[in-house]
């Protein structure tokens, strides 16, 4: 037993090194490369930007930092407008996912164990088909002579097809449809683990069911809500495929702006600056949120 205990910290370090190593290799190193490019200047060359470091003379290594790319992002209103619009679209999508996902997760968590597994399987079933293919399927459903319009016309609800494709409505459908499982799963795993005797206690103390939900279930499920919202919100901000396939071409999204900088303007430095700015906009508030939540949790544990 004592020997086991002595081994324990070493095992623990080993286990925690793996994720850190992963983050270092696949997050920090690429981030530093992108950061480096963002301080460079575009050029007609391979790769299409100037090197940051170059030998001015045999003994002098010069570093050339170009801050112009970040200044450029502030000068042209295109960038902050697209950031804001992306955050707005992602926010609305997250809210819709939460409104639809919460009752679904709740129903799944409270159903009996055998149906629960089937429901869980159904929730992840869409992942068996390629994401791109599923978005294309929505084109078939929503287009002017697509399934939805044809069905509505056949039933006599409408006389002329409604323009649904290439509208914001189609984008929200695509976003909510694609990201709903990311909301559903963390909510479900949280709600499923909840101690049901707490609800009985609440009832004993005179809570009506809805009061028990608001006072007990909802606060306890908050970590699940936050996890689900982040899992939906973060990829939704950078989403590029859904708006470009289903949305109006005029919809300003930061993912599209980044694409234009990288592929059409061939300006890797500005594209990198856009990516870094997006990361900072997203990561800093989330880190703050995380810290605030941890502080609140510690507070809660102490009292």
């Amino acid at each position: 037993m004592r020997r086991f205990k002595r081994l324990l910290p070493r095992g623990r370090t080993l286990v925690t090194t793996v994720p850190y190593l992963w983050l270092l290799l696949f997050f920090l190193v690429p981030f530093v490369i992108v950061l480096k490019i963002s301080f460079s200047q575009s050029a007609i060359a391979m790769p299409p930007y100037e090197p940051l470091l170059h030998w001015a003379s045999e003994k002098m290594l010069q570093v050339q930092l170009n801050l112009g790319n970040f200044a450029f992002l502030v000068e042209d209103n295109l960038y902050w407008k697209s950031y804001l619009n992306s955050i707005f679209v992602a926010g609305v999508s997250t809210l819709l996912c939460l409104l639809i996902g919460y009752p679904m997760a709740y129903a799944m968590a409270r159903s009996n164990p055998s149906t629960r597994n089937i429901l869980l399987l159904l929730a992840v079933l869409p992942f068996f088909t390629s994401f791109l293919l599923r978005v294309y399927a929505w084109i078939g459903l929503l287009k002017n002579n697509g399934l939805v319009n044809n069905a509505l016309m056949a039933m006599g609800v409408i006389d002329e097809p409604i323009q649904m494709l290439q509208t914001d409505f189609a984008v929200y459908i695509g976003m909510v449809y694609s990201y709903l499982p990311f909301m559903l799963l963390p909510l479900y795993s949280n709600l499923e683990k909840m101690d049901l005797t707490l609800l009985e206690a609440a009832a004993d103390l005179g809570c009506k069911p809805w009061q028990a939900f608001v006072k007990v279930t909802l606060p306890l499920s908050l970590p699940g809500v936050i996890a689900g919202c982040l899992l939906v919100f973060i990829p939704a901000v950078g989403e590029f495929v859904i708006p470009s396939l289903l949305g109006d071409p005029g919809m300003l999204m930061i993912g599209k702006v980044l694409w234009t900088e990288f592929f059409n303007n061939r300006d890797w430095p500005v594209a990198s600056a856009v990516a870094i700015a997006l990361l900072l906009f997203l990561v800093l508030p989330i880190m703050y949120l995380d810290r605030a939540q941890n502080a609140a949790n510690e507070e809660g544990e102490r009292t």
Partner: peptide, 19 residues
């Protein structure tokens, strides 16, 4: 040229977004 391409794509963004 790179400068013209940037101006062109900026124009194009104004066209696609309609503003």
């Amino acid at each position: 040229s790179a400068d013209y391409t940037r101006a062109l794509n900026r124009t194009w963004t104004r066209f696609t977004t309609g503003k």
